[in-house]
């Protein structure tokens, strides 16, 4: 425990941080790795994909908003279990989750993405991009699929996904933080723990740099999502106001 790692954080502490985050991640994932492996080749049939494609735009948007909101609730639970997160002030807890929850959902999505046939788990089975055609935002859907494929190519372990999710969430890049120093200290420890695990697992010395280089894409995807939501809302204000989950509206509207 007395051996010192970067920035004089003891290796024992880094290990405790890593173990806490990995446990929090595993306890709050919607699907276990085993469940995902069992489902991996259960794909929506041609008829089912056609059925999604023929849905009215607002109906599919609503279905996606419900799925995203469900996934976000698990991310909130993940955040709460990270040691140090609940010690941040309430303002910063809300800010970090508001700006980072969708990014974490997208990181977690790579667990439920099959890069061999470019399909993602949606409503119980895997399906390709064409399943989301009726949303009317091909650019966003295609960018999300590209991101998932690119993250999968890094072949991250469950531990690395956990620590990367925490690093994405606990970020000093978010504007209006009240205690940025406190967030920074926590973020640094998470990065050191991530670095330590990646050095252990990967032969590729640039693996961590490659992973970090995906963060701007995450941010761009979230901006694109907000823009698409605004465009959708202009055409279907009633759907958003009445039928979308209140948490989704609170976070993105």
């Amino acid at each position: 425990d007395s051996q010192l790692g970067p920035n004089n954080v003891s290796m024992g502490e880094l290990d405790r941080i890593a173990q806490n985050i990995i446990k929090s991640h595993l306890e709050t994932c919607q699907y276990t790795t085993e469940e995902l492996q069992q489902l991996a080749w259960q794909t929506h049939s041609y008829e089912e994909v056609k059925m999604y494609q023929s849905k009215p735009r607002d109906v599919l948007w609503q279905q996606c908003a419900i799925q995203i909101t469900h996934a976000i609730q698990y991310v909130v639970e993940f955040a709460k279990r990270i040691s140090g997160f609940m010690e941040l002030c309430q303002n910063d807890q809300i800010l970090l989750l508001k700006s980072g929850c969708l990014e974490v959902v997208l990181v977690r999505m790579c667990r439920a993405f099959n890069p061999l046939n470019n399909t993602v788990l949606f409503e119980g089975k895997y399906g390709g991009m064409q399943m989301f055609k009726a949303l009317g935002c091909d650019d966003l859907v295609s960018a999300v699929f590209d991101f998932a494929k690119s993250l999968c190519s890094l072949q991250l372990t469950e531990e690395e996904i956990a620590l990367f999710s925490a690093a994405v969430l606990i970020s000093t890049d978010r504007p209006w933080l009240m205690e940025p120093r406190k967030v920074q200290k926590l973020q640094e420890k998470i990065y050191f723990a991530l670095q330590h695990i990646m050095q252990k697992n990967h032969m590729d010395e640039d693996a961590l740099a490659k992973l970090i280089s995906r963060i701007p894409t995450l941010s761009a995807l979230c901006t694109l999502h907000t823009e698409e939501l605004q465009a959708f809302q202009q055409l279907h204000p009633e759907t958003v106001n009445v039928l979308f989950p209140p948490l989704y509206k609170e976070l993105f509207n």
């Binding site: 609730q73 909130v76 639970e77 709460k80 279990r81 609940m86 309430q90 303002n91 807890q93 809300i94 800010l95 989750l97 508001k98 209140p246 948490l247 609170e250 976070l251």
Partner: peptide, 17 residues
């Protein structure tokens, strides 16, 4: 911020299940 994010605030306040 709490006022504008009542649901998120409530989720954060709920005890971890």
């Amino acid at each position: 911020l709490k006022e504008k994010h009542k649901i998120l605030h409530q989720l954060l306040q709920n005890s971890t299940s």
